[in-house]
């Protein structure tokens, strides 16, 4: 059941993005920016938390999940250390993902070469 819920929620988030890409002329890069920001805002107003509770990885693996981690971290940071927590908490919560993106991204770029599209 857990897997099915992840599949459904993750799939639906992607469908929303697909409709936006097909119906508007937004490029995928812009959609990514919108989705992260949307994740932050939805978390702040308390909508994303229930989606995560229900969908698990289906809600945390898509990019709004990245926004969710950032927003949740920022709020937690404020609770722990006041205003400075707003600056520390977000990136601290997402540090694993960001560092992995830098390191694995760098390694992959150095080790592999791009190929002609078929």
């Amino acid at each position: 059941m857990e897997y099915l819920r992840a599949f459904l929620v993750g799939g639906l988030i992607c469908v929303i993005a697909q409709i936006i890409i097909d119906k508007t002329s937004l490029t995928p890069a812009r959609v990514l920016v919108c989705f992260v920001t949307a994740g932050v805002i939805l978390t702040a107003i308390g909508i994303y938390e229930p989606i995560v509770k229900f969908g698990g990885a289906g809600a945390t693996v898509p990019l709004p999940g990245f926004g969710y981690a950032l927003a949740k971290g920022a709020i937690k940071g404020v609770e722990e250390m006041g205003a400075m927590g707003a600056f520390v908490g977000g990136v601290r919560a997402a540090a694993g993902g960001i560092t992995a993106a830098v390191v694995f991204g760098y390694l992959a770029a150095v080790l592999f070469n791009p190929r002609m599209k078929r």
């Binding site: 890409i21 995928p28 791009p114 190929r115 002609m116 599209k117």
Partner: peptide, 18 residues
């Protein structure tokens, strides 16, 4: 050349875009 034009005008070749 497909590859030179693509990287100048559009996206990197290995980027998964439709």
């Amino acid at each position: 050349h497909f590859c030179t034009a693509e990287r100048q005008y559009r996206f990197p070749l290995e980027m998964g875009t439709q």
